[in-house]
Simulated assay, not measured.
Amino acid sequence: MSIVPPDSARPTIRDVARIAGVSIKTVSRVINDQQYVSADKRERIRDVMREIGFQPSQAARALAGHRSHQIALICDNPNPWYVYEIQAGVRERCARDQVRMIAQPYDRASPTLLDDIVALLDQANPDGLVLAPPACDDTRVLDELARRGTPFVRLQPGMRIDDAPAALIDNERAAFDMTVHLLGLGHRRIGFVVGDRSYAASGQRLAGYISALSDHAVEVDLDLIRQGQFDVASGEAAADVLLSLPNPPTAIFASSDDMAAGVLAAAHRRGLRVPEALSVAGFDDGPTATIVWPALTTVRQPVRALADAATDLLLAAAPVNKAEQRLLGHEVVPRASTAPPKG
């Protein structure tokens, strides 16, 4: 009689143990990558699992090894592309370790925000969390995770940097480099549209813009700095104010591509040719940068790679090293929306 279960039956952990000639507890240890199993037994058990097509359930893994083999991503952003890239980066890294990703929306204005995250921890029992902006800087979330001892990593944090490992780019330097690019074209009146205040990157990018102007002996004119919300509408509204000034800017640097698209809309509505009458630059290098007209000069940030790096920190370290940070590079990408100022 065949030792392999019939096709109609789903192989179980008992089948693996019986065929490999070991105890169920030994199989559980192999499933959960625990110690105290010899190399030859470990290999034999894995061979049997492959032969009969055994796939351990998440529930079985959790019961056997006190791990759920799933991690949670807490993410919110007004840009769907940004959210998708983060989810893709986390999911792809999880797949390499056969770990499941749970995506939990984050609404900082929700009165039940903390209760929702606590419920996620209690019900799904994730092995750790990846916190994307702005959740990565929410002290309520950080304090609750620290109290519970739940491992977590952060994407693009702006405060309490040593609380957990992080993957990030140097937002201040990236904005500095873009501003220097515009200065190098000859612009001296450069408007700046700040992103949503709840994101640490917004303040970091503003600091980079100011630092670049100061380093090149260009006076910082507060009238040229306007608040946005990382969306098209706020970029258009900010541009309307900037372009209505008695001495309007010759270039506008918006700290997201969506806001830069709004700047382009305002310029086109006024009959201003871009880049002849106004140069426009953005930040992200997502799909928006190349579908608008003219295509945007922008800062490319590797969003998916950042999410992959953050997840790798969570999965690779046991225990997680709080001091570890992975700094990824950025790139200024010149396109048709910027040129030297007219005259």
Rank of each mutant, 00 (worst) to 15 (best):
V194T: 13
V48T: 11
D116G: 03
T290E: 13
A309D: 09
L114N: 03
E219P: 08
A20R: 08
S255M: 10
P165Y: 02
D163R: 13
L113S: 03
P133A: 14
R205V: 07
L155T: 07
H187Q: 03
V48S: 07
P5H: 07
T250M: 02
H181D: 10
P157R: 03
D284E: 15
P111Q: 06
S211T: 13
D258V: 04
M159R: 15
A316W: 08
A281F: 08
A64F: 08
I102K: 08
Q227G: 04
V130G: 00
G282K: 04
Q301V: 14
L114F: 01
L142F: 05
P249N: 08
Q70R: 15
N79M: 08
S234K: 09
K25N: 14
A20G: 07
A175Y: 00
H181E: 12
K41Q: 13
A238S: 12
N247S: 14
Q87G: 12
L328P: 06
L245K: 05
H187F: 02
D215N: 13
V130R: 01
T250N: 05
G21F: 11
L296E: 01
Q301G: 09
V141C: 04
S2N: 13
R188C: 11
A339R: 00
N171E: 07
N32P: 12
S2E: 11
G65Q: 09
A265G: 01
P275K: 03
I86H: 02
P294C: 04
I19R: 03
A238T: 06
G128L: 00
A307F: 08
P11S: 01
R18F: 02
R50H: 13
G186P: 08
F253S: 00
L155Q: 06
A167I: 05
H216E: 01
L155K: 04
L168H: 09
R269Q: 11
L185Y: 09
E331R: 02
A316P: 08
E324I: 11
C94S: 09
L114V: 04
P5Q: 09
D137P: 06
A261V: 11
P133D: 10
R96N: 08
D312T: 13
Y84S: 14
S57Y: 05
P105N: 00
G89L: 05
R269W: 02
A201T: 11
I31N: 07
R93G: 12
N247I: 11
G184C: 06
R44H: 12
I86S: 00
L142M: 05
S198C: 12
L306E: 09
D143E: 14
A132D: 12
L224S: 01
L142E: 00
N77G: 05
G191F: 04
